[in-house]
Design a protein around this nucleic acid. Structure first.
Lengths: 173, 173
DNA sequence: CATTAACCTGAGGCCGGGATTCCGCTTGAC
DNA sequence: GTCAAGCGGAATCCCGGCCTCAGGTTAATG
């Protein structure tokens, strides 16, 4: 693969990631191309279709999140600390967007497993935090995840914006 | 106007309101018609186009909210109480959706004034709550409004769901 | 630097879905 | 009973987004 091609591929992925995070998964291929300063044709040279691009980004993002979360969870720090770290890591990511908003059913073989594992890990974390007394206990762990999903995984979210802060404080015991 | 026509008009508005609140403003005319048990043609008998329907609902909703909020603000109760009431009144309303999501620029003559007044009222409320010490003070009043706008005015929000609860608690001093 | 395979561009074809129209059939009102 | 007001929903129009492809560019190599 030529050097410029490799560079462009990377550029496409990061640009698309940004746009998805900022505006949701309905961003058109044209917009991505324009933002990346490329022609649409180039996108199609690297990804057979929109779905493939979406999927690559989704899987990639979830895998990074998984890695990050596993590492954070392995530490000895209080579960609350870990939760906060993960939340901050999540804010602004296009989490779930690719899957939820592109109407196409999941097709990448890794996605289901990844999701299952992430969910399990987060629920574990939430439960742990409740046990150590730092996370309010009137919300079931699974609901904490769902809530964070709505709150943090929104277009334009940032780790330090007011809403994220308020939600974290609201979750504190 | 014939009695059945009047009834249908009302039915269209309430059905559309529900659907917008539940799924956002991108609900199609067909969906609204189906949900109301009417033909699309009937929608167009009552509203010249989609935009008109959206606008009627937007203005109507904002006016009710204005009325409600004015009344609540006039009470002697603590500002926090008032804020909570208003928030609960808002949860699930299609607030802002009509304006934000339909790409058409505002055209109804009442909308700009309504928005300005509502904003002013809410900012007033937030400021009052901060002064009485019930609302955290590290968030500017205008940001409180913006934050609530993101948090409460989302499709499917309900006054007693976990996210609303958490946000209210997170805003508490 | 000449050669060439790999790349890139972006206008245009195609299509799906959603808005809007329209005409024959119904129904409330008098 | 009459008929204007209403209604239904298939047909049509239209927009906007996905994807293709012919023609020009460029990195890599000897």
């Amino acid at each position: 693969m030529r050097a410029d091609a490799r560079r462009n591929r990377e550029l496409i992925v990061t640009t698309a990631l940004d746009l998805f995070a900022e505006h949701g998964a309905r961003v058109s291929m044209e917009e991505i191309a324009r933002a990346a300063g490329l022609g649409v044709g180039t996108l199609y040279r690297h990804f057979p279709d929109r779905q493939a691009l979406l999927e690559e980004i989704a899987v990639d993002t979830l895998q990074r999140l998984m890695t990050f979360s596993r590492a954070a969870a392995a530490e000895e720090t209080p579960r609350w600390q870990v939760l906060r770290l993960v939340v901050e890591h999540c804010a602004g990511l296009p989490l779930g967007l690719a899957k939820t908003l592109s109407s196409t059913p999941i097709s990448h073989p890794e996605l289901p497993r990844l999701e299952r594992d992430l969910n399990a890990l987060f629920e574990q974390l939430a439960k742990g935090a409740q046990e150590e007394g730092t996370l309010r206990e009137d919300i079931p762990p699974s609901e904490v995840i769902a809530l964070l999903n709505v709150a943090i995984c929104r277009p334009g979210a940032r780790a330090d914006d007011y809403l994220t802060t308020v939600i974290l404080d609201g979750l504190r015991r």
